[in-house]
Design a protein around this nucleic acid. Structure first.
Lengths: 133, 133
DNA sequence: CTGGCTGCAAATCTTTTGCATCCTG
DNA sequence: CAGGATGCAAAAGATTTGCAGCCAG
């Protein structure tokens, strides 16, 4: 694919498949989901390759690793700063586009040099709201 | 200990040791650190008991599980809403006391019912700032 | 007394590693 | 053609589970 040419990484078919699966994916998939999806097209791909690729993409800032799911690695193909809505029932994660300029008072910074922030909004998604009695 | 009486859970010596270790602990320890610490006093305690107890405490809302460290379960003995400073170098986590009233526009809520939020401030702590050349 | 807890060991699950081989740039 | 990427299988960690016995309420 054209757009991946200038990423400065070797474009193997496996990587291309991973990149295409991630491109525009709003589901914040886990490593295992990515592996499963790409396996359909490349039955011989190994988990190691998936993890390797994801780590490489992360290092180059092309994707972000999410941490709100303690049970597995999840990835966000959107590398631009944004925030997340998290459903406490089904663990669905949805992007929040707004920007929030949160200024932490000097006295609260504890000597940290702050580069950015990430807000997790916790709640219940529409599906789960209706599901529960 | 007096203060743990009315938690509504069986107060075994093992649990008491875990509770005392957590009480006022600002280090956001991992399950494994808690296990190591309590093992000093109870050499026969099992990891299973530590995990069981932590899960029980979490279910009752007495502690919170933190997710920003993908490699292990970490816990916060402070059950009240607050936020965190995270050192990107050494992974140290420090509490932030301020309250932030972040209003997410209706159009951005995606049908979610929002209960709360948690802000992660990313940066570098004073120690790591000086360490790095 | 009795149901919830504990300790132990084995099982599970996710992620990482070592290494020989392959193939992109 | 060289160095990075791949596949495989085994290893490493963290957490969970099953179960028999124990003990706090």
């Amino acid at each position: 694919m054209e757009k991946y040419r200038n990423f400065g990484l070797k474009l193997t078919p496996q990587r291309l498949a991973i990149l295409q699966y991630l491109d525009g994916n709003k589901a914040h998939p886990s490593a295992e989901e990515i592996y499963r999806a790409v396996s359909r097209r490349f039955p011989t791909i190994s988990v190691a390759t998936v993890y390797n690729t994801l780590m490489t993409l992360k290092e180059r800032g092309l994707i972000k690793e999410l941490t709100m799911d303690p049970t597995k690695m999840r990835f966000d193909p959107n590398p631009f700063p944004h925030h997340h809505l998290i459903c406490m029932d089904c663990r669905r994660i949805v992007d929040v586009q707004g920007r929030f300029r949160i200024q932490l008072p000097e006295t609260e910074q504890e000597g940290f040099e702050i580069f950015g922030n990430h807000i997790e909004f916790y709640g219940r998604c529409s599906k789960c709201k209706n599901k529960k009695h």
